[in-house]
Simulated scan of single mutants.
Amino acid sequence: MKLLRAPNLARAHELVIRYILEKGSLLTTENGEETVETDEVCLFVDTPLAKPMVSPCSRFKEAFLEAYARNLIDGSDSVFEYDYHGRLFDWGCGLTQNGEIHQDQIQYIIDKLRECPVSRRAVAVTWCPPVDAKLADCPCLQLVQCVVRDGKLNMKIVFRSNDMLSAAGSNMFALAKLQEYIAEKIGVEVGTYTHISLVPHVYYKRDAADIPPFCGKGTQFTPCIEVCRVCGGCAKAKR
């Protein structure tokens, strides 16, 4: 597993994009989409709420991500096959056990850490096997763990698969806001943020236009030759 340490979320996003585009291997997904991926990566962010939380290279700006974070924490009226708010704040997926199941996992984390700050059991999961095995679009985020150490709430996240170019920036921003929400409920400061992606990838054909800002059109780093050929966003790529 590759460990990438950064002072803030924006820098973590930039570092992981560089790593994937330089070191990745090509793979056509089961949905027929062209990706470049690497083995597991772990992004360790010292101060997740520190500015900048959003990389200027990303096409999604902070106002959009603030709305995305609010939807994660408060929910929205939009209808999807699943959403992370539902899976974290109202897990159940229509399952029944002496009535329909409704489990607020975030409140469980808050209650657990209030009761026992040293607990290692403050965990929330999103996967629902009877449902997700049949979904065309199933959750990428799998696990959220919170621990209190040295008076601070550290959050640890696991994604089974992660679109690092167009989704990870939004994911990290919203989850750091969730970390802040939980910390405030417990009455502690926000600590570190750890983001583990088991299959980190970039859709280098679909999102080719989003690549040049990260590589600086070849001035910051040079992606692997296959990505450059598809992108064609700078003179170096054309050569």
Results as ranks from 00 to 15, higher is better:
G191K: 02
C231A: 02
L4Y: 13
I17D: 05
I186Y: 14
F60T: 12
D137E: 09
L65M: 14
L65R: 11
F44E: 12
S76L: 05
R206N: 10
P223M: 07
K205F: 11
P7S: 06
D132W: 11
L143G: 02
G151Y: 06
A124Q: 06
Y193H: 07
H85R: 08
V202W: 11
V190E: 04
S161Y: 00
D111L: 07
Y193D: 00
V36S: 05
G232S: 12
L72P: 10
Y19V: 05
A167G: 09
K152G: 00
P52H: 04
K238V: 13
A12Y: 06
R149Y: 07
C140I: 04
I186W: 13
E22A: 05
L49H: 04
R149Q: 13
T38W: 10
C138T: 02
A174D: 04
D150M: 01
R18Q: 15
D210N: 13
A67Y: 07
G94K: 11
C228Q: 15
V54A: 03
E34T: 02
W91A: 06
D90N: 15
T47V: 08
P7G: 02
D90W: 12
D104C: 10
P52C: 07
N8L: 03
R229I: 00
G169P: 07
V230S: 11
D74G: 10
L26H: 05
F44I: 04
L15P: 06
S76E: 07
P130K: 10
D150I: 00
Y84E: 08
L26R: 10
R11H: 09
V45T: 05
E189T: 02
T194F: 00
V190F: 05
C234P: 08
L178V: 01
Y203F: 15
L21A: 14
T96K: 15
Q97L: 13
T126N: 06
A174L: 14
V227C: 11
V158A: 10
L43S: 12
V144S: 01
I182P: 01
T126F: 00
R59Q: 10
T38D: 02
G92Q: 08
A168F: 00
K51E: 13
K2Y: 09
E34R: 15
P212W: 07
L88C: 09
F221W: 08
G24V: 03
F173V: 03
K2E: 14
V199L: 12
V188Q: 08
W91G: 04
F214V: 07
V123Y: 00
Q97T: 09
F44K: 13
R114V: 00
R239F: 07
E100V: 13
D207E: 09
T28G: 01
P130S: 08
K51I: 03
L175T: 03
L88N: 01
V16I: 14
S170D: 09
R87L: 15
G24D: 10
G233S: 08
N8R: 07
V144Y: 04
V158P: 03
E226Q: 14
M155S: 04
L9T: 08
